[in-house]
Design a protein around this nucleic acid. Structure first.
Lengths: 244, 244
DNA sequence: TCCGAGATTTTTGGATACAAAATGTGCCAC
DNA sequence: GTGGCACATTTTGTATCCAAAAATCTCGGA
């Protein structure tokens, strides 16, 4: 399980992302420590890290509060992710991918191809897509030979919905998920074609579209309904920024 | 002076950036603590932060080492900064700047205009340019209404040469600095024109060119000589990645 | 009822102590 | 000379203690 700091970070993060900690609640070092059964020292480090990840906001002198995410926030985080991953894709197209990179990407594409060829989408297919999608994105970021891209992405890696591996479990959205998976797979194929062809501009532009897609497409194709689902899942705050 | 953590971060950062800590040295919690006359608790937090800033690298179980920067590293960090600030400039052009933003940017431009109209460049002029440049960039990033851009930039905000406020003190480069200041001022004017005109594409592209410029232009216009100066200043590591 | 001074509680910040893990060293057997 | 083992040292990780600052509460007086 690693060190106490690591467990504190991952447990608190899970609680926050899953909505187990009420957004209204204040989180102090002591409260979190007793919640986890640890001393304040490792919890302090964990809270500081979660703050840099953007999941907590520091209330000077009164602990932290869970950062409320509006749909607008998610779109903003998506934009940043898209800009950085687009940079990575463009670099990789210029550099040319290594053999390992080729293997990883092509296995990712093969995974989603298997899903798209079918018609039904079960929870299992969604899980496979998530895995393949994460593989696709992390492979490109790691292969682009610029550590600072990864450093920058770490900041927003754990924001719900925005992260490549994340797709929030919301009931009754199989149809929307099928659309998402099909479009996502298609874009993977296109981006990979551009990278293989050494077309940095096309790779960059398509990746920018693709990486920023999750939240944007949700608005486009699902609209108000998606927002309501997110609301009821407790991840997105009520009020402020509704879609459109 | 704030908390001990803050002083530890800024003192250690200054020592690293100024080359006062030998790059070859290992930095442990205890060594840094006794160096600063503090206990390990605040120093530990400081070291962790400097690691996220990319100035230190963790050697699992044996402390940290100062991250050696090659010219290539600086270019990579510049690319990331350019991508994020370009996003900010494009957003601001779409949004339209507030009155405070207009005032801040125009005062920044006025400052550099005063320098460009003269011919000589003293240390004083360079300092003014740095201040004006930093104001220009931070204003745009803050005004673009996307906190995640700022979060991402924090990661690379303190890398020598890459940061907007940083211009390494290297002797005998007045001519190169005049060029840099003139070009920089011109680009500020162009970018600002695009933003005022609501031309997001032009703003984005020019900012990407401009924010990535420091290291790239150094290669273009000064070449090998600049690299040698940086080497002798102790900031850039000897070996690995020389220019072009 | 409202305001403010002082006391109390909460909360953070920092230092120290101790334990555990990792690393390095030296000796001995082979 | 080499390999391995035991011991010493270094280094990190965690808990606990104390102090200072901030917030909150209380109570008396206008």
């Amino acid at each position: 399980m690693g060190t106490a700091v690591e467990t504190a970070v991952s447990e608190l993060r899970a609680m926050i992302v899953n909505g187990e900690l009420p957004v209204s609640d204040r989180v102090t070092e002591s409260s979190a420590a007793s919640l986890l059964g640890l001393s304040r020292t490792p919890v302090r480090a964990a809270l500081a890290q979660l703050e840099t990840e953007g999941l907590l906001v520091k209330l000077e002198g009164r602990g932290y509060k869970i950062r409320p995410f509006s749909l607008e926030d998610l779109e903003k985080a998506s934009e940043v992710r898209a800009a950085l991953e687009a940079l990575a894709a463009g670099r990789l197209a210029s550099l040319g991918p290594s053999q390992e990179t080729v293997a990883a990407i092509e296995s990712s594409i093969a995974m989603t191809e298997g899903i798209v060829s079918r018609s039904a989408v079960t929870r299992r297919e969604v899980a496979i897509y998530q895995e393949a999608n994460e593989l696709f994105h992390t492979t490109i970021v790691d292969a682009c030979d610029n550590d600072f891209v990864r450093l920058g992405l770490e900041k927003i890696a754990n924001i719900p919905i925005v992260a490549p591996g994340a797709f929030t479990e919301v009931e009754g959205m199989a149809q929307a998920e099928m659309l998402r998976i099909t479009v996502g797979h298609t874009q993977h194929v296109i981006i990979w074609d551009a990278i293989r062809a050494g077309d940095a501009v096309r790779a960059e532009h398509m990746m920018r579209e693709h990486a920023g897609a999750p939240v944007r497409y949700a608005r486009l194709f699902i609209g108000e309904g998606y927002y309501k689902k997110l609301l009821s899942s407790g991840i997105v705050e009520r009020g402020s920024a509704g879609p459109g």
